[in-house]
Simulated scan of single mutants.
Amino acid sequence: MTDAISSILSQIRAHEMRTRGATGDAPASNAIGTLGSGATGGVNGATAPGFQQTLANAVEQVNQTQANASSLQQAFEMGDPRADLARVMVAMQQSQVAFRATVEVRNRLVQAYQDVMNMPI
């Protein structure tokens, strides 16, 4: 199970790198800033987004993927010739994988929170 989660997280990181572009200002894959403030990164002193912003961006991207799949599905159902079945099915699968990855990350965060809360003082 851990290998599957690691694989999903690496895919999410790779997708994030592709969406940002190869500008070199992305934080390291294990860098998590504090909530509300970003960690400094890069040579120019720009701040990287914090954990809260990164999580919000990931959820927004999943939402956009689902909306795109839904609009393609609706266009296919209405008979739009630009929405072929293969494109619709690929978009639906991408949406499903993105949602499952998000749920898995959420489950891992909840489990980590519970583990921390159950630690003896």
Rank of each mutant, 00 (worst) to 15 (best):
G38D: 10
A67K: 03
A83R: 04
T102Y: 12
A22T: 00
M1P: 09
A58F: 12
V105W: 01
V62L: 06
Q94K: 14
D115G: 08
A91N: 04
M89D: 08
P120R: 12
H15E: 07
V62H: 06
R82Y: 13
A46W: 11
D25K: 03
L109Q: 12
A26P: 00
Q114V: 07
P27V: 01
V103G: 06
R82Q: 15
A101S: 15
Q53F: 12
V88P: 03
A39F: 09
S7H: 13
A46S: 15
P81F: 06
S7V: 05
A39K: 10
G50Y: 12
V43I: 13
Q74L: 12
V97E: 09
N44A: 13
N118H: 00
V88A: 02
F99Y: 08
A39Q: 14
G50W: 07
A98N: 09
T54L: 13
E77V: 05
A48C: 15
L109W: 06
V105Q: 07
D80W: 08
Q111W: 07
F51C: 08
Q11C: 10
D115F: 00
T102R: 14
N57M: 08
N118A: 00
Q74Y: 04
G41L: 13
Q94M: 12
H15F: 02
T65N: 03
G42M: 11
A83L: 01
T65I: 10
G45Q: 15
S29K: 04
E16P: 01
T23N: 11
A39P: 07
G42W: 06
Q93V: 14
Q93P: 05
R108V: 00
R108F: 00
T23E: 02
T47W: 11
R100D: 15
A67Q: 06
A56P: 02
M92D: 04
Q94P: 04
Q114A: 11
A112R: 14
Q66L: 09
N68F: 03
S10Y: 09
P120Y: 05
D80N: 14
L35G: 05
G41W: 12
Q96R: 15
A67P: 01
L55M: 04
V103T: 08
A101C: 10
R13W: 10
I8Q: 05
M17T: 01
G38V: 08
Q52P: 00
N57A: 13
I32L: 04
A56T: 13
D80C: 07
G41N: 12
S7K: 11
N30P: 01
S37H: 06
R82P: 05
S37F: 10
E60D: 08
A67I: 01
V90S: 10
Q111E: 15
N44F: 11
L85E: 13
A26H: 02
Q11M: 07
A75Y: 09
V43L: 15
E16M: 05
E60L: 11
Q53V: 14
H15W: 01
